[in-house]
Simulated scan of single mutants.
Amino acid sequence: MTRNNSYWLFQSVGWFIYGMIGVVVAFLFYENVDVWVILAQFFSAVIMLISTHLLRYKMKLDGWLKLKIQKLILRLVPTLIIISILANGIVVGYTILTTEIIEVEKFSITVFLLFSFQTFVYFSLWTALYLIIYFFRNYKKEEVEKWRLQTAVKDAELIALKAQINPHFLFNALNNIRALILEDHMKARDMVSHLSELLRYSIQFNDNEKVTVEEELEIVNKYLELESIHYENRLHYEILSKKELKKCKIPPMLIQLMAENAVKHGISQVKNGGDILISVDQEDNDLVLEVSNTGKLKKNLGNGIGLRNATERIRILFDSEPDLDLTEQGNMVRSRLKLPIVK
């Protein structure tokens, strides 16, 4: 059952019971209870239902449910007073016109205010119950989303470890470094440092749900430097990013995954190698991550587990649907990902 369906079910049943209680009270304390008296009780229940529904609509429309409790109370109390007086005025007017329960001669402003206070109490109890259910459901939803996030991040870690720290990658990197030791021992030392940083980042990134663009680009640069040794003169790359965007937060290993796809599905498939261009830009309120590489677009690339997992992490972390676009232009393949800017 959906939230909306359950809301209307409880609303209908709750106020129907309220009407039935009114009918029972009428039979116990009034004489000559006829059909009009019974209709008056259910008319009161219908007015209560409509009033509480309008209150719920206003709370949701004006964003009251996102306010702190003090500000919420400051808005609710005067609103409850107003709707209590209006609802009670409608019910009293209908009852006077259709029944003889209320004696007009004895009716006064004091009696009206007492009736209105009674209605205010009912509305206050309804509001308290609604808020308790609402916040409890949201709390449970946040707990579920938290567990989903932890599961997604754990899955992403396993995928990243499988993709990055596999024997083939390590074998190539270590062999290339070994060959460099005799040719250029300083560069070999730098490559060992890059490999160490890459492995440490890949293993430890699960400790953080988000990293800065700057941190991510640093590790991507180290990864591409290692791969450029393996492909020698076949791989050329460039990384561009606006300075003001480097502190933006993204899921870890996101650009790294895009760069790895560019190498795996692009450069490694081209005989003479090619270029990789990585850029971080801004489009309205979105961060745009773009990786272009020499090669041809594979039809099933967009269905890869890594890309699916990355977009799922973005959806959970940023509560937004990411926009992933894979296109081919000439001899270049462009992977473009848009996500909200978070600093």
Rank of each mutant, 00 (worst) to 15 (best):
Y223G: 10
D286W: 07
C248H: 09
N303L: 12
R189F: 08
Y57W: 15
H185T: 08
S292Q: 11
L80C: 00
E216A: 13
H185N: 14
R137D: 07
E105D: 15
I181H: 01
R308L: 09
L307A: 12
D155A: 14
A45M: 00
Q41V: 00
R334K: 11
L80W: 00
I239W: 09
I69S: 02
F135L: 08
V104R: 15
A128E: 04
K343P: 06
L226W: 05
V333S: 04
D319Q: 13
V37E: 09
V25D: 09
L217P: 15
F16A: 15
M258C: 08
K242T: 06
T294K: 11
I50F: 05
S268T: 09
V333T: 07
V23H: 02
A45D: 03
R234N: 13
V291R: 10
C248G: 10
L149D: 07
T119S: 05
K296A: 10
L158E: 14
Y57V: 08
L113H: 01
I165F: 14
K68S: 14
N138M: 09
S108A: 06
T212I: 00
N176T: 13
N175T: 14
Y7Q: 03
S12W: 04
Y130L: 08
I159L: 15
Y139Q: 02
S196I: 10
E321N: 13
L170P: 15
R313V: 10
L182S: 14
G306I: 11
G266W: 08
E238M: 01
L61N: 10
M186F: 09
E157V: 04
G304H: 12
V291K: 09
Q204F: 06
N272M: 09
E214R: 14
K242W: 01
V342G: 01
G63N: 06
L129N: 02
G22M: 07
L224D: 05
H168F: 06
S84P: 03
T212V: 06
N285T: 11
I96P: 02
E328M: 10
H185Y: 07
L337V: 04
K187P: 03
I82S: 07
E103W: 00
N300L: 13
S193F: 11
L65N: 03
N166F: 14
E283W: 07
I267E: 05
Q41G: 06
N233F: 00
N208M: 09
K58A: 11
D34F: 11
P78T: 05
R3M: 04
I82N: 00
C248K: 01
Y231S: 04
I181K: 02
E321A: 06
E216L: 13
V92M: 06
S196V: 01
A179K: 10
M332P: 01
I314Y: 07
H230I: 14
L49M: 15
K222W: 00
D275K: 15
L54C: 05
F117K: 02
I96G: 01
Q329R: 12
K222E: 12
H53A: 00
I109L: 13
K338E: 14
L235F: 10
L28E: 14
E105W: 01
